[in-house]
Computed example of a mutant assay.
Amino acid sequence: MIAMQYSFTLPADYDMSIIDRRIRDKGPLLDGFPNLGFKAYLSARKGEFGSQDNLYAPFYLWQRPEGASDFLCGPGFAALTGAFGWPQVKTWIIWQAEISPDIAAARFATREILQIEPYAPLAEIRRAESAETEADVATGGALASICGFEPTTWTRVRFSLWRAIPECGAHMQAYRLGHLSLART
Rank of each mutant, 00 (worst) to 15 (best):
S160H: 12
Y56D: 13
A142E: 04
W154Q: 11
L180R: 03
W162M: 03
P28F: 05
Q63R: 15
R184K: 06
L143A: 05
E129C: 06
W92Q: 12
I125K: 00
A174V: 06
P101D: 10
E124V: 03
T152S: 06
M1F: 12
D25F: 04
S69V: 14
G37S: 05
P166H: 08
A105G: 08
A106F: 07
F71A: 01
Q88F: 14
D136T: 08
F108I: 01
G76K: 10
S130C: 07
I103P: 04
Q63E: 15
Q63Y: 09
M4W: 06
A106R: 02
I93Q: 13
D136P: 02
G32C: 06
G178E: 10
T133K: 04
T9W: 03
A40H: 07
P75I: 13
D102G: 09
M4P: 07
T81I: 14
P75D: 15
A144G: 01
L42E: 10
R64A: 12
A128K: 04
Y14W: 10
A79G: 12
K39G: 00
L29K: 13
F59Y: 14
E117G: 02
F108W: 08
W86S: 15
L61T: 12
F38Q: 04
C73M: 14
D15P: 08
A123K: 04
S130F: 00
A109M: 05
K90E: 13
A106T: 00
V137N: 04
Y41F: 11
W162I: 01
F84Q: 13
W62I: 08
V157F: 09
D25P: 03
A135Y: 06
R184A: 06
P166E: 00
Y14N: 10
A57S: 15
F71D: 09
I146A: 05
G140F: 02
I93W: 10
A164E: 14
G50A: 03
A164F: 05
S181R: 00
Y41D: 12
F159P: 14
A138L: 00
R21G: 02
R107F: 01
F33V: 07
G178T: 10
F159D: 04
K90S: 14
D70Y: 11
M172N: 09
H171K: 08
A142G: 04
R156F: 08
P34A: 08
A120P: 09
T185C: 03
G27H: 10
L182N: 03
L182M: 07
D13Y: 10
A174M: 06
M4D: 11
I165P: 12
D15K: 10
G148T: 09
I2A: 01
A78N: 01
I116A: 09
T81F: 07
